[in-house]
């Protein structure tokens, strides 16, 4: 699965897009764990103290933040066309 990174996360990952190998029935939580395993520096950004998805990062599936999906990290990645990972950002 291709995952796109943005803003300050690009410096950690060293690329704008990366390919992540996941089983066909993978869910968001497994994707996050795979990212942390490959780039340990992402752990403090992606995971909060209780092991949940941190507020400091948004994982978007086809433009919707996982935070707003009913199943959260348990959401299946099957059929998802784009995965984008952003640090929390704003401006104006």
């Amino acid at each position: 699965m291709e995952v796109a990174f943005f803003a300050t996360l690009r410096a950690i990952v060293g690329a704008k897009r990366v390919e992540i190998d996941l089983p066909g029935d993978a869910r968001v939580g497994e994707l996050v764990d795979a990212l942390v395993a490959r780039w340990p520096d992402l752990k403090e950004l992606l995971r909060d103290e209780s092991g949940g998805l941190s507020r400091r990062v948004h994982v978007f599936l086809d433009g919707r933040s996982v935070r707003w999906l009913p199943e959260g990290e348990a959401t299946s990645l099957e059929g998802v066309e784009s995965v984008d990972v952003f640090p929390a950002v704003a401006g104006g």
């Binding site: 803003a7 433009g63 933040s65 784009s82 950002v89 704003a90 401006g91």
Partner: peptide, 28 residues
Amino acid sequence: EANITSPKKGGLSVYGTNVLMNVTNKIG
């Protein structure tokens, strides 16, 4: 460092306000 204002580390400080372009694009 948890805030986007964090000097040289937060998204607003590193990229300026235009750090928003890609995210608003992605969410439609």
